[in-house]
């Protein structure tokens, strides 16, 4: 069945729309941060003001084009948050979990991801300003992006609690525990406020590389599990049916 036909006949089309938007958003996000703007992996925290000016000049168009895309399409981050909120609503737990998750992640997106876009775009648009100011924007951009991961910690714990209390079998329980692992790595990035060098700086082996490895696995896993939830979902309120194995 073609995508167009399934959108017309499939009662789950809204869910699939949200799911495909989630995949599209995370792909866009990766392309913007890793390829276009090259703001991930993060720049070195110990740059001097003059080196910062060169850093901005080096990726001038990348920053402008990449973050313009985010300003236009960044709202699609709402699709993954809403789909996850839907998954919690589908569980046998209080709606309070879903609402807390929704509100937390909606607010967390501002320091966790929009601040860096604004700061870096300002830097790219005003290259003639005092290098000290550009240096400040550089620090502000990366510290707001990396240093505020803690805002996602409680959200991850809420999702974990909902999964572990749920009796509808919306997600496998091991994924509940993976949420705990993810929440714990959100703590690890906090020392990047203190260290400008070494393994705990914002580009450090522990604070960045290990964290991103865990977060990357977590993201791939939850996108896959949301897909399997939509496939199994009977759109009811009771237990989600087990997967049907078709030959």
């Amino acid at each position: 069945m073609s995508l167009g036909a399934s959108l017309r006949t499939d009662p789950k089309r809204e869910l699939w729309f949200a799911w495909y938007s989630t995949v599209a958003f995370y792909s866009l996000y990766s392309v913007v941060f890793f390829v276009l703007t090259r703001t991930q992996p993060p720049g070195r925290p110990w740059l001097t003001p003059e080196q910062t000016v060169a850093w901005f000049a080096d990726r001038h168009w990348g920053l402008l084009v990449g973050f313009a895309l985010i300003f236009v399409l960044g709202g699609f981050s709402a699709t993954s948050i809403s789909l996850i909120t839907y998954s919690i609503r589908r569980m046998s737990v209080s709606r309070a979990y879903a609402y807390s998750y929704l509100i937390l992640y909606a607010i967390a997106a501002i320091p966790g991801f929009l601040f860096i876009c604004v700061a870096m775009t300002v830097g790219a648009m005003r290259p003639e300003r005092d290098p000290a100011l550009l240096h400040w924007l550089y620090d502000f951009g990366f510290l707001s992006f990396s240093g505020t991961m803690g805002v996602f910690l409680v959200g991850s714990l809420i999702w974990m609690a909902a999964i572990l209390l749920d009796k509808n079998g919306v997600f496998p329980r091991w994924f509940g525990y993976l949420n705990l692992c993810n929440a714990l790595t959100e703590v690890v990035i906090a020392p990047s406020w203190i260290f400008q060098r070494g393994v705990l700086a914002w580009n450090g082996v522990i604070a960045w590389w290990i964290d991103v490895a865990v977060f990357g696995m977590y993201t791939v896993v939850f996108i896959y599990l949301l897909r399997s939830l939509i496939q199994r979902d009977d759109l009811g309120t009771g237990p989600v049916p087990a997967p049907v194995i078709t030959g």
Partner: peptide, 14 residues
């Protein structure tokens, strides 16, 4: 619970 062992192994590796 079997799923708890996922946590034990995963967190040990982290």
């Amino acid at each position: 619970e079997g799923d708890m062992w996922f946590f034990v192994v995963f967190e040990s590796l982290v």
